[in-house]
């Protein structure tokens, strides 16, 4: 199937601003699904609230557009009821790790078989450019005219510590790597977290004087490096990208089946 066959073309052009990285993530995601040859009927996409969460409206899968920060909770319900379906949960940085932080760590802890895609543009775009828990220090935002003092989360470290069994990071500059990683994450059995550094030229770029969308994408090229590279040793400030964790652990739905079997055995 062609990439466009996975999209609801009647809703395009999408509502994202010119140069928004979320469109690139959408492209990477549908190309990954095309690579895997998945049928539209076996995928459920669950999203919450925010610019990023509008992504579920543009894909022709089963889609749920739910409440802020609770996409993973809804996805957990779907997965438990229909474990044979593939769950993909795209979230923004605020959706995933501010209001949804608790759902995020507990979904990782349970190792539910689903893919959490964190589209990290380090700002709340939809509500007007407030800083988020991933903005980090020394960032300008509508709510931080004199720069932020808050430290940001490291999504990869957080997901690792919470027990996710697949953890990776890529950027909208490295589109081919992003597509490959998303494909691997979807194929992975267990809770997979993929952080994609995405650009918000309208708020983050403008407030922090990084330039236009192309300049922001180039920033990702200049400030990231493959895991364990020599460049990272020389400049520890670089952000690593690639697959950090890929391991097999008991999956929640399968373990739950065993509980059901135990309960049935006891009753008879």
């Amino acid at each position: 199937m062609a990439v466009k066959d996975y999209l609801r073309e009647r809703f395009l052009p999408h509502l994202w601003c010119p140069g928004c990285g979320h469109g690139e993530v959408l492209g990477g995601l549908v190309r990954a699904i095309e690579q895997l040859g998945l049928s539209k009927n076996e995928i459920v996409m669950v999203s919450g609230i925010g610019c990023s969460s509008r992504i579920s409206g543009y894909v022709d899968f089963h889609t749920l557009h739910t409440i802020h920060g609770r996409a993973l909770a809804f996805a957990t319900g779907v997965k438990i009821a229909r474990p044979e379906l593939k769950l993909i949960v795209p979230m923004g940085d605020g959706d995933a790790l501010a209001i949804g932080g608790n759902h995020f760590i507990h979904a990782a802890r349970r190792n539910l078989d689903m893919t959490a895609l964190v589209m990290n543009n380090r700002i709340y775009g939809m509500t007007g450019g407030q800083f988020s828990p991933l903005s980090g220090e020394d960032v300008s935002a509508t709510t931080a005219p004199y720069k932020t003092i808050d430290r940001g989360f490291d999504v990869v470290e957080l997901a690792k510590a919470a027990g996710a069994t697949f953890v990776a990071r890529s950027t909208t500059f490295h589109v081919q790597q992003m597509t490959d990683i998303i494909a691997k994450a979807i194929r992975h059995k267990g809770f997979s977290v993929v952080e994609v550094l995405s650009q918000c030229p309208t708020y983050f770029g403008r407030k922090n004087k990084i330039g236009d969308a192309a300049d922001m994408i180039t920033w990702f090229k200049d400030h990231t490096t493959p895991i364990g590279s020599k460049a990272k040793q020389e400049d520890p400030g670089l952000i690593e990208r690639g697959i950090f964790v890929e391991k097999q652990e008991p999956e929640y739905c399968e373990e739950y089946e065993k509980v059901v079997a135990r309960a049935k055995g006891r009753r008879s």
Partner: peptide, 11 residues
């Protein structure tokens, strides 16, 4: 194809 892959708008 980098233009195609990086275009946020499938344009």
């Amino acid at each position: 194809r980098l233009c195609e892959l990086r275009c946020p708008d499938f344009a």
